[in-house]
Amino acid sequence: MSVRYGMISVASITDRFMHAVLENGDVITAVASRSLTKAKQKADQYGIKRAYSSYEDVYRDNDVDIVYIAVNNANHSREVKRALQHGKHVLCEKPIALCAEDAEELFTYARKQGLFLMEAQKSLFLPVTQVVRTHIQKQTLGRLHQIEMSASFPNPTAAWMHDPAQGGVVYGSASYTIEYLDYLLAPKQIHTSPMGTKEAGGACDRISMNFLFDDILVNSRISMNGPTQHHAIFYFEKGYIHVPDYWKAREYTLVKGKDHQRFTFPCLYEMKYEAAHVRECLKNGWQESPIMPANRSIRCCSIVDNIMQQLEQVNREEGR
């Protein structure tokens, strides 16, 4: 069964997803942008038959099974709800909403409509992620006790990324850490202690998040000021696993004493695993993903809410 997609937005991330969809043998029926010229350019580039200047036209298109929403963060909730109102299944880029209350409302509405809804989080579906999860669960290197993570997305050009109400590194990227580790560790409790800085416009431009996922200590740093290391390191009792570019990983190195073993999982478009999972969900008539379910998205939104509240409290105390 081929899945027929409608693309909501022509933002840069849609290129990677469209390649992944086509590589999996699915179909892109329509693409929409607020600029018809941009929509036509994207349609011509990928051989898509229909280009629209209105998202509503995609939602009304009877040849579209599911929409992929990649608009700016502030409009995710609105577009998800509109798509569901028109009877479309939805895959929405992270974050699915800017607060836990909105996320919960969206999933409740999707269930009421009998439709599939998932927040896109490609890292959970990667083969490297599955291998790391197996090592954690089977304790092949002993018990996991600490994780170090680092990422950067320097000098973003999109104006909304500098909007403190929807952009910055917390709204934009904290879910990479939270949902990735929530899947890997399945914790009963998560405690959070963040420190961050703001750029002139007020958006959080650097964040250092300390977590306790049950008894596992985590430090995750994200910056949009300049380049940093891009990795996750999982420290076990008998060694460690190093994962470069953990959110799009194609390799990992297992280190035990002096022994270093590197394993690779080459692919052109890392989002293909996520797209294949969406097709499986639709084929089986599932309204939620068993890997990226509603409660994981809502939990992440709640933690992000808490992080932002803690940062604002520090700013108030320091008079920033």
Results as ranks from 00 to 15, higher is better:
219 N>M: 06
255 V>Y: 06
237 E>R: 03
193 S>F: 10
197 T>A: 04
268 L>S: 12
233 I>W: 02
206 R>A: 12
215 D>G: 08
245 D>R: 08
263 F>P: 03
256 K>P: 00
228 T>H: 01
219 N>F: 08
203 A>P: 00
212 L>N: 13
206 R>S: 13
217 L>K: 10
203 A>Q: 02
262 R>C: 12
195 M>V: 13
199 E>G: 07
240 Y>C: 05
200 A>W: 09
249 A>N: 08
248 K>G: 11
243 V>L: 09
202 G>Y: 00
226 G>L: 03
235 Y>H: 09
216 I>K: 03
230 H>A: 07
209 M>C: 02
231 H>L: 14
198 K>F: 06
280 E>C: 07
244 P>H: 14
260 H>Q: 07
255 V>T: 15
217 L>N: 15
270 E>C: 08
264 T>S: 07
227 P>K: 06
253 T>V: 14
207 I>E: 04
255 V>S: 10
214 D>W: 04
243 V>K: 00
260 H>T: 10
235 Y>F: 06
257 G>W: 03
279 R>C: 08
194 P>S: 06
233 I>A: 11
230 H>C: 13
253 T>I: 10
277 H>K: 01
280 E>P: 01
267 C>E: 09
260 H>I: 09
251 E>V: 14
246 Y>D: 07
273 Y>G: 14
210 N>A: 14
224 M>Q: 03
250 R>I: 15
261 Q>A: 09
257 G>V: 10
238 K>W: 01
250 R>G: 15
253 T>Q: 00
224 M>T: 07
224 M>P: 00
209 M>D: 05
263 F>K: 13
280 E>W: 05
224 M>V: 07
279 R>P: 02
257 G>Y: 01
215 D>F: 06
229 Q>C: 05
267 C>N: 15
216 I>T: 12
272 K>Q: 14
211 F>N: 03
220 S>H: 08
274 E>K: 00
223 S>E: 08
243 V>R: 01
273 Y>N: 11
